[in-house]
C-alpha cells in the first residue's frame, strides 16, 4: 500500500502540476485585471445542483436584457423544461419568437412562431451584421460563455457588477467604451447592462443588481453545461463503485500474492 501511495502521489502531482499554473498564465498575459469575485453557488461542489428558481429568473434576465445583442443558439425551447418550466410555459415562450420555416408548397420560406424543437433565434444573422450594429464590437453568443471564460460563472458575475462610471485617473476610454474592473484591459464595448430594478421578478425576489447578476450567471452556467447535474450524480456513484471494486481487487491481490511466501 505504501509503495502505491507513492505512485499515487506522483500521479496526482503530474496531473495537477500543470493545470493551475497553466491556467493562471492567460490571466497574467491579459493584463492586471482584479481578482474576480467568488459566489457561493448552489451548483458548485461534487453534490451541487442548480437552483431552478434562480435559473428561471436568469432566463427572464437573458430575454429582457441580454437577448437584444447576444444569441443563445445551442439552447432549444424544449431545453427550458429542464430548468423547471412546464411544457405550456415553454411553448408560450417559444411562440413569442419568430423563426423561419419552409419552404412551403410554393417554395417560399415563411415566418412562423417558434416551437419547442426550435432553437433560440440569434439577434444577428452573422458576425458581420453583429459588428455593423455594435460599433465594430461582436457580442458573443452566450450558450457556452461560462465555459469559454477563465473564472466561469464567477467571472460573468464579476463582470456584470464591475463597471465604474468614471475611469480611474490617467485612463482615457476610447469612443463608446466603458470601464470595467474585471475585463481584461478594462475597456469593454458593452455598456453596463444591468442596474437595480432592471427587471421585475414575478416571484417577488428583490431585483437588486447583485441578484440579477447572480441569476443570469447561474443561468448561463446551465446553458454552458446542461448535463452538469447528471454528470455529478453519475460521478458520485461511479467513484463509490470503483472504490469498492478496488478494495476487493486489493484483497484478491494480497491473497494471490500471499502464495508466494
Amino acid at each position: 500500500m505504501y509503495k502505491f501511495a507513492k505512485v499515487l502521489a506522483f500521479t496526482a502531482v503530474t496531473a495537477l502540476f500543470a493545470s493551475p499554473l497553466y491556467h493562471a498564465s492567460p490571466a497574467l498575459a491579459a493584463g492586471s485585471a482584479e481578482p474576480i469575485m467568488k459566489v457561493d453557488w448552489s451548483h458548485s461542489g461534487p453534490f451541487g445542483t442548480f437552483d431552478r428558481a434562480s435559473l428561471q429568473r436568469g432566463l427572464q434576465v437573458y430575454r429582457e436584457v441580454c437577448s437584444g445583442c447576444h444569441g443563445l443558439r445551442f439552447i432549444a425551447f424544449r431545453n427550458l423544461l429542464e430548468i423547471g418550466l412546464t411544457e405550456k410555459e415553454a411553448k408560450t415562450i417559444a411562440a413569442e419568437y419568430t423563426v423561419m420555416g419552409g419552404p412551403n408548397d410554393e417554395g417560399e420560406m415563411y415566418e412562423r412562431p417558434g416551437k419547442l424543437f426550435d432553437y433560440m433565434p440569434s439577434p444577428f444573422d452573422n458576425e458581420k451584421a453583429a459588428r455593423a450594429s455594435n460599433n465594430g464590437a461582436f457580442p458573443p453568443d452566450l450558450s457556452l460563455i461560462a465555459k469559454a471564460r477563465i473564472g466561469g460563472e464567477n467571472y460573468l458575475y464579476s463582470l456584470l457588477l464591475g463597471y465604474e462610471e468614471e475611469p480611474p485617473e490617467g485612463v482615457t476610454l476610447a469612443e463608446g467604451m466603458a470601464y470595467n474592473r474585471y475585463f481584461p484591459g478594462h475597456q469593454i464595448a458593452m455598456g453596463p447592462p444591468i442596474d437595480d430594478e432592471a427587471v421585475e421578478y414575478a416571484d417577488g425576489t428583490a431585483p437588486t443588481k447583485e441578484q440579477i447578476a447572480r441569476d443570469v450567471s447561474a443561468f448561463l452556467m446551465w446553458t454552458a453545461e446542461p448535463a452538469m447535474e447528471a454528470r455529478k450524480r453519475m460521478g458520485v456513484k461511479v467513484v463509490l463503485f470503483l472504490i469498492v471494486l478496488t478494495l476487493v481487487l486489493y484483497g484478491v491481490k494480497r491473497k494471490v500474492w500471499a502464495d508466494l511466501h
Binding site: 499515487l8 500521479t11 496531473a15
Partner: peptide
C-alpha cells in the same frame, strides 16, 4: 482500479 478512481474524479468533477 486505483487509476480508474483518479480518472473518474477528473472526468466527473
Amino acid at each position: 482500479g486505483i487509476f480508474g478512481i483518479i480518472f473518474a474524479l477528473l472526468l466527473f468533477f
